[in-house]
Amino acid sequence: MQIKQIRNATIIVEYADKKFLIDPMLAEKGTYPAFPNTIRQDQRNPIVNLPISVEQIINVDAVILTHLHLDHFDEAAQKILPKDIKMYVQNEEEAKEVRNIGFQDVEVLQEDTVFKGIQLAKTKGEHGRGEELLKLMGEVCGVVFKHSSEKTLYVAGDTVWYEGVQEELDTHTPDIIVVNGGDNQVPEFGSLIMGKEDIYEVYKAAPDAKIIVVHMEAVNHWGLSREELKDSMKEKEMDSRVLVPDDGESYTF
Score class of each variant (00 low, 15 high):
E197L: 15
E217M: 06
V165N: 04
W161R: 05
R226T: 11
V179H: 01
E217H: 02
P187A: 00
P207M: 04
M194I: 11
Q185S: 09
F189P: 00
G195L: 11
L169Q: 03
G164V: 03
T159Q: 08
E168K: 04
G190S: 08
I177P: 07
E167W: 04
L224I: 11
G195A: 13
E197Y: 15
L169I: 15
I199C: 00
G223V: 11
A209V: 12
L224Y: 11
G181Q: 05
Q166M: 07
M216E: 10
Y203N: 05
Y154A: 13
G223Q: 10
V214E: 03
L153A: 00
K210P: 05
V219R: 04
G223Y: 09
V178M: 02
D175M: 07
G182F: 01
V219K: 03
G164M: 03
V214K: 08
E227P: 01
K196I: 14
E228W: 02
I212R: 01
D158M: 11
V202R: 08
V219S: 03
M216T: 12
D158E: 12
R226K: 14
I211K: 02
E150Q: 15
P187E: 07
T171K: 15
Y162I: 07
W161Q: 02
N184E: 10
G195E: 12
E150N: 02
G195I: 12
